[in-house]
């Protein structure tokens, strides 16, 4: 079977991004970009399924401007077999992305779609659930463990109160949580090899989907700063402050 993994190019998780001076968005000029960490986990999980013989092909897709091809190459360097870039200059939002992925699923007929649970830039946490609803496929979100036997998936989900186990038939949509796996690093030979792997370029038009964003960002602001704190010298001083100043204990 074939697995489709959707990836997003985002600001690297270690970068503290700044707001543009005109407050219309974030200043991304010259900032280090990477594969969204949850998507990296999604790629890794697909590769492990391939190594176990559960699937035969790992297809990675990304939607965005030409720069996302870098992220697709990064996923190919990790071991994915082929890539599709859906090219658009529009800002990508979950609903449009889910529609594009649905069209790609219909075209490519994978048995499993794996996505990161959320992108660390817009923090929406929606695309996998939307795709599952549009495809009418079962969904397993925020998963921390996965087994596939025959046509049946068993997935453990991270929920607020603990861990929930679900089973579901293939085909299905899964979204990854942090502890599903520890992604590998791309080796130099694999980075070289990735350059030769096939990458198809499509447009939203070719897929017949509308990527126009529904949400319009009016402005972006810094969160209100916390008032400066103070360092205390001892446990006694701390307890005294907490009791008599902050009145919280």
């Amino acid at each position: 079977m074939k697995i489709l993994v959707a990836v997003k190019r985002v600001v690297d998780y270690s970068v503290k991004v700044r707001i543009k001076s005109d407050r219309t968005g974030m200043d991304l000029a010259g900032v280090k970009m990477s594969l969204n960490p949850f998507d990296e986990i999604a790629v890794e999980e697909a590769l492990r399924l391939k190594e176990k013989g559960v699937c035969s092909e790992v297809l990675v897709v990304s939607i965005g401007d030409t720069a996302v091809q870098e992220s697709l190459r990064a996923a190919l360097a990790l071991g994915a077999d082929r890539a599709i870039h859906v090219k658009t200059e529009l800002e990508t939002q979950p609903l449009g992305v889910a529609k594009a992925l649905k069209a790609l699923v219909e075209k490519e007929t994978p048995q499993l779609v794996v996505l990161g649970k959320q992108a660390i830039d817009d923090d929406f946490n929606q695309t996998g659930q939307m795709l599952s609803a549009l495809l009418k496929w079962p969904q397993g979100t925020f998963i921390s463990s996965l087994t596939i036997e025959g046509q049946e998936i068993q997935a453990v989900r991270e929920v607020d109160g603990g861990l929930e186990t679900l089973k579901m038939p293939l085909p299905a949509v899964l979204t990854t949580d942090l502890r599903l796996n520890q992604p590998r690093y791309a080796s130099l030979p694999n980075i070289m090899k990735a350059r030769q792997k096939p990458m198809e370029i499509l447009t939203a038009n070719m897929l017949g989907v509308d990527l126009t964003p529904h949400l319009q960002t009016l402005k972006v602001a810094e969160p209100p700063p916390r008032k400066p704190g103070l360092k205390v010298e001892s446990v006694d001083a701390l307890l005294d402050r907490l009791r008599h100043e902050a009145k919280v204990i």
Binding site: V17, D121, D123, T217, K219, V220, A221, P223
Partner: peptide
């Protein structure tokens, strides 16, 4: 957005 580093008005 961005881990709470910014607040977006949408």
């Amino acid at each position: 957005i961005y881990a709470g580093n910014a607040l977006a008005t949408v």
